[in-house]
Computed example of a mutant assay.
Amino acid sequence: MLVLVKWCLKSCYWNGRFSGVLNFEADFKTGQMVATKRSTIFSAFSHLLMFTLLIYHTLRTHTVTTMWKYANSLHEYVFMVIAGFRLICVFLALVSRWTQRRTFMRMLKSFWILYKKNPEIIQYCQRSILSKFCCVTMAEIFQVIVTFVLIRNKINFATGLRLWAVLSLTAVINVIIMQYFIAMASIRGRYTLLNRDLRTIVAETRSLNPNRSGVFVTRCCCLADRLEEIAISQSGLQKLIEQLSEAYQGQVVCLVIGYYLNMVASGYILFSITKYKGLSDNSPLIVTICSIAYFVFYYLDCCLNSLNIFYLLDEHDKMVRLLDQRTLFQPGLDHRLETVFESFVLNLSRNPLKLRFFGLFEIDRVSSFALGNSILTHSLLLIQYDVEHF
């Protein structure tokens, strides 16, 4: 499984290079990140060509009615809004990549150092990474199949260029999300290792018999040193999370908006296929099957993105609960050990782990539930409008 994870990581890196999301080169043997002329020119040309073709494609408002004979004006309006906002969001995300290129180079360097110091973290996040890679890959494969089947009789050079632009846009979105996913999964893996060590320290401290002997004092000093190392590591991890959130906040906000609009539109499209039989009656069976499979993997991908962050927050909460067990320690512990415990707890209380973006929203289970409720509400509003006017 470890070989597969490394292959996924390499694939993500090269996809980032080919899509222009990574506008610098990385040497993972030495950890050096270099913004070469070659990587700069290739990324700039790729983005310029993609957006030129996408703008031209978006302005062709008859796209939906060409694909679907029975599409109404609301379908066309929804398509244009989704395509326009998606284009703007990806544009802003890539602008952030160019304006903060040095920041992303430092971030990748930091994660390279984190992995070199703690190679075990891969064991605790390999399933998440493989599941994410599998969902993204399968969704893209089904999307490509549906697209090629629908335009099989209209393939020419111009159509091929527009298709390449659309698939490149999807690749850019997936690469950005995959990079953020891997970063958060790696931090979660490191948190798991810290919690494992902290659990051992808490168990050893609870077993201490305060008798003020030399052995007792030595053990307390040893435990205090180990606890200080965990506290320093946790503080560094939280700073890394804050830097990651700050660097990705523009991209995360843009992509969350994109996900939101796609979810709302997906609910309406599923309703439309049921209501307007002509939307799917003339399509081959493989289109229907692949479309359903695409939606399944797309929603699984969204769930994995959310769960990845929730599990990280859970690991942080586990650390807080482990430290709360200090109230069960026997009285009379070494003063230094008690001081380190109190300092660690105080630091976590003063700096709770919160994933905020531009102050607009915070990612946690409550906000995700509210977002899901909002998606359902707006999907129903679209359906209600369709029922009343068409």
Rank of each mutant, 00 (worst) to 15 (best):
F295T: 08
F295E: 10
F295A: 10
F295L: 11
F295C: 12
V296W: 06
V296H: 08
V296I: 15
V296P: 03
F297V: 09
F297E: 06
F297M: 13
F297W: 10
F297K: 02
Y298M: 05
Y298Q: 07
Y298L: 09
Y298I: 01
Y299Q: 14
Y299G: 02
Y299C: 08
Y299R: 03
L300W: 13
L300V: 15
L300P: 01
L300Y: 05
L300I: 13
D301L: 14
D301R: 08
D301M: 05
D301P: 00
D301A: 15
C302W: 02
C303G: 13
C303V: 11
L304T: 03
L304W: 11
N305V: 06
N305T: 08
N305F: 02
N305S: 07
N305P: 00
N305H: 15
S306D: 12
S306F: 06
L307I: 12
L307K: 09
L307A: 09
L307S: 09
N308T: 09
N308P: 07
N308H: 05
I309N: 01
I309F: 08
I309W: 00
I309G: 01
F310K: 01
F310A: 09
F310N: 04
Y311V: 07
Y311P: 00
L312N: 01
L312F: 06
L313R: 09
D314Q: 12
D314G: 03
D314H: 14
E315G: 00
E315V: 00
E315I: 00
E315L: 00
H316K: 00
H316S: 04
D317C: 06
D317S: 15
K318T: 14
K318E: 06
K318C: 12
M319T: 04
V320P: 03
V320D: 08
V320Y: 04
V320F: 11
R321C: 12
L322W: 04
L322R: 02
L323C: 07
L323Q: 03
L323W: 04
L323D: 01
L323Y: 05
L323F: 10
Q325E: 11
Q325P: 02
R326G: 03
R326Y: 08
R326N: 07
R326F: 11
R326S: 12
T327S: 14
T327E: 15
T327M: 12
L328R: 13
L328M: 13
L328H: 08
L328T: 13
F329N: 05
F329R: 08
Q330A: 10
G332V: 13
G332Y: 12
G332N: 06
G332I: 15
G332F: 09
G332H: 14
L333C: 06
D334G: 14
H335W: 10
H335K: 15
H335P: 11
H335C: 07
R336A: 11
R336F: 12
L337T: 03
L337A: 06
L337Q: 02
L337F: 08
